[in-house]
Design a protein around this nucleic acid. Structure first.
Lengths: 139, 139
DNA sequence: TGTTAAATTGACGTTTACGTAAACGGAAAT
DNA sequence: ATTTCCGTTTACGTAAACGTCAATTTAACA
C-alpha cells in the first residue's frame, strides 16, 4: 500500500486530517522553504512517513499561529514563546507563575500595539478626508 | 559665540525646539547609530550646524512616527511610505488618488493587525485564567 | 589652554528570516 | 518501465536593520 494515498485521500477536503507540506504552502501562501525553516527553529515538528513530512491538524493550527505572529511583527523566537503558552500543560506552581508573567508581558505589548494602531488609523482617516476634500475642489 | 550653547539652552526643557542626537537617543531609548541609520534611509533629514546634526521638533515627531511603525512591525521602507502620507502637500488629482489608495491599503493592514491582536488577547486571557485556576487548586 | 566628553564618518561584522540552486530519493502518471 | 513530479537535504546567498569598532573632529569644562 502506498503512503501517499493515505495522505491525499481527499485533497481539499474540509475535514482533512493530514497535510503535505505543499498543501499548507498553498493554503496559507507561504513557501515550503519557510515552513521547513520554522521547523528548524523548533516551531513545528511534523511526523514523518519515511522522509516525507506529514502535518496534522494541530501542526496546521501552529502554522496559523506562526503566521499571525508574523503579521504582528513578532520574531520567530517571540512566536515560539507564545506557542509555548498555548501548549502549556498544567504543571507546577513555579511554571504557572512563570507563564502568567509571560502572558502579562505579552499582553502589555499587544495593548501598546493596539493603541498605536488606533492612533494611526485615526490619523490616516484625517489625512484621507483631507485628500478627498482637496480633490473635491479640483476641476 | 559657541554653537553648542544654542542647542542646549535648557536641556530637558519641555518647550525645547532643538535637539542633539543624544537628546533624542536618550528620550526615546534608541541608539544614535539607529537614528543615523534612519537618516541614511531617508526617513530623517536634520539640519546641520557645521558637521553636527540639529533636530527640530518636526524631526522629533518623525522619529516618533518611525518608532511607532517599528512597534507595529513595519519595515523602514513601509514607514517611509507612511511618513510620506503625513507629509503630503495638497497636490494634483493623480497624486491625491495615489495617496488615497495607499492610505486605504495601509488601513486594511492595520485593521487585520487589530483583529489579530484582539483574537490573541482573548486567547491569552483564556490561558491566563486557566493557569490561575490550576494554581488555585495547588497546595 | 589643555583635557575630557560628545559627535562624525567610514568600514566591517552580525542576526534574522528566509531565497535559491544543486543533487538525490521516492511516488505518480502514462 | 520510465519519465515526471514532489519532496528532502545541504549549502551558499541575501536583504534588512542595525552593532561595533577605529580614527577624527569638535565642543565643553576645569
Amino acid at each position: 500500500m502506498l503512503l501517499g494515498t493515505e495522505i491525499h485521500l481527499t485533497p481539499g477536503d474540509p475535514g482533512q486530517e493530514q497535510f503535505s507540506i505543499s498543501d499548507l504552502s498553498q493554503e496559507f501562501d507561504v513557501t515550503t522553504r519557510a515552513i521547513r525553516f520554522y521547523e528548524d527553529e523548533g516551531l513545528l515538528e511534523p511526523r514523518r512517513k519515511g522522509r516525507r513530512r506529514v502535518y496534522t491538524v494541530r501542526d496546521r493550527v501552529r502554522l496559523k499561529l506562526i503566521l499571525r505572529g508574523k503579521r504582528l511583527g513578532f520574531s520567530l523566537s517571540e512566536i515560539g514563546d507564545i506557542i509555548t503558552m498555548y501548549d502549556s500543560e498544567p504543571g507546577e506552581a513555579g511554571q504557572l507563575h512563570y507563564f502568567i508573567n509571560k502572558i502579562s508581558a505579552r499582553r502589555t505589548v499587544l495593548k501598546q500595539q493596539r493603541d498605536d494602531i488606533d492612533v494611526t488609523l485615526n490619523e490616516l482617516d484625517a489625512i484621507d478626508k483631507q485628500c478627498r476634500k482637496t480633490l473635491a475642489r479640483l476641476p
